[in-house]
Design a protein around this nucleic acid. Structure first.
Lengths: 315, 315
DNA sequence: CTGTTAGCGCATTCAT
DNA sequence: ATGAATGCGCTAACAG
């Protein structure tokens, strides 16, 4: 570590060859005599030389970087997806730069700007309601959207319809004639709208009267809405997320009621604290995997924009 | 967005000035006549020109990037710190690249390597027991360690001693003659050792008999250890973290016991679910703030390595 | 004050 | 198969 940083040039004269030869070796070209290649590789390893990313980027006009923009760093579901994404990215010799949109379109735009300035090759974006065409304009072929979809952009979405359907069926099969619902209006249109609409639809199909309340994604909202919505006679409740369910359950337990709760998420905390809750897993890590694979292949030109649906699983 | 990317050169001839003049304007040098500066700035804005980061980096031999390495992306405490760090970094025109060490020294080394290759200017590192001198060698003047300390490296640490002291005093003042403790052996030596040692010390000072169990940072560990450690006669329990406390409380409630619990962390979930728990806040966001400020000033050369202690607060 | 010049480290022609 | 030359976009000396 004492030496200053070596350059391609240094390696070249150290090996007694030209710079381009070294360059070819680095880029795994087959246009180098085997003997020469091995000698150069030996010196490179011995000297611990690594090519300058900055120079490579300047020369090739593209950074080997992929931007990943989550809505919130402390989102349990997005965390699971990220855990699948990052290894993929690193494995393909890319670096990742992780950012947080906080569900703010303005902040998202700023982040996309930074990424554009950096000339990053691709972006994985966790969607929310503020994400529209104008924001992702110019990223069409190098952007994968997770959890929400947009025309002209590759996306990986969850099976929200299936998740609610499963829970509703389980409740009905357990003999419940009425099922309440607590969801969200704000933030993510996927979580909010689709799940709610599916609930309404299932109610109609099952001949049930809908009984729902919508709020935000917080514990407190779940608690407050439960208080306004439920009664001692409520038999079953479906919550749009584990966080909401956590709040609702607190209220239910305080009242000493016996209500069957179903929730979407299946976070470790929920399964630990409330193993009786009916839980649907949305396949977050799988979504991350698919999204990063898709993006990588799109950048590689071996695949085009797609629309992938991740199935949910009941446990 | 239809034009190809403009370069400094394009702007220069568009303004009818030399490239260096434009460069000076970009870098806010005062060596430019006001009239010229304004004209150039106008064109720059009008054309939406942004300098190439890659070229800047190559030329100046340093990327305006700061690496942030957390132990786990889903750590609530580290998340709070990050929320304070990122805005600081962006505000100073740096970009952040966020990585996860998973408490694995090998992975950490790999990440530091990547950052070194990228020539990042500085690193903020969340410490754990595997972090030693050899790993951070070569980063001495551009690395700030959070939550653990090392000689020759700037660091920001939490007041673990104070936190345990506060809880022990509250317990004693509430009349408890015996206080149990559930902590951790693994991972973070700070969380583990210091808190445990302080507990033992306080017990001695208060003439109490220590009654402790150590495990890992999971809910389950808290639950299991509580089962082995507590009895119906236990009056008070201190947990080294909210996660552990969550597990212990579940066991306590199952038994129907009445035990006063104190915990370190004060996460939103804990204060929502268990408002009766005695909670000590460690000042995570403040630590993030201090750490990023310190690093930025170190890079700026206006400050040298320091060792900062963040006070804890009881609520 | 402003224009000119010379590289930063690398990849990509073109010669050889 | 390999060396020499060119330029990516920018900054820093040096001129003017």
């Amino acid at each position: 570590m004492s030496d200053k940083k070596l350059t391609l040039n240094d390696i070249a004269k150290l090996c007694g060859v030209g710079k381009s030869t070294v360059s070819l070796v680095i880029n795994n070209s087959d246009k180098v005599k085997k003997a020469t290649r091995e000698r150069v590789e030996a010196i490179i390893k011995e000297q611990g030389y690594t090519p300058s990313k900055a120079a490579q980027a300047l020369r090739s006009q593209r950074e080997k970087i992929i931007g990943v923009i989550v809505t919130r760093l402390d989102s349990a579901s997005e965390n699971q997806a990220i855990r699948a994404i990052l290894p993929q990215i690193y494995q393909h010799e890319y670096d990742a730069i992780l950012m947080e949109s906080l569900l703010d379109p303005t902040l998202l735009a700023a982040h996309l700007n930074v990424l554009a300035q950096r000339n990053v090759e691709g972006v994985i974006l966790f969607g929310f309601s503020g994400v529209d065409k104008s924001l992702v304009k110019g990223w069409k072929d190098k952007l994968v959207l997770i959890s929400s979809a947009l025309p002209e952009v590759a996306s990986v979405v969850y099976d929200n319809v299936g998740a609610v359907n499963v829970l509703m069926e389980k409740m009905r099969d357990a003999g419940h004639r009425s099922v309440s619902y607590i969801g969200v209006t704000t933030n993510d249109p996927t979580t909010g709208n689709i799940r709610y609409q599916t609930y309404l639809e299932r109610c109609a199909a099952f001949g049930m009267t809908p009984h729902a309340a919508l709020g935000d994604l917080s514990y407190q909202s779940g608690y407050d809405l439960a208080k306004g919505l439920l009664t001692a006679e409520s038999g079953a409740l479906i919550c749009a997320s584990d966080t909401i369910a956590m709040g609702a359950i607190k209220y239910i337990q305080q009242q000493g009621w016996k209500i069957k709760v179903g929730s979407i998420g299946s976070t470790p905390l929920m399964t630990f604290l409330q193993p009786d809750v009916l839980s649907v897993k949305m396949g977050y890590q799988q979504a991350g995997l698919k999204a990063s694979q898709l993006l990588l292949e799109m950048l590689h030109g071996t695949r085009t924009q797609e629309h992938i649906v991740i199935p949910c699983t009941f446990q």
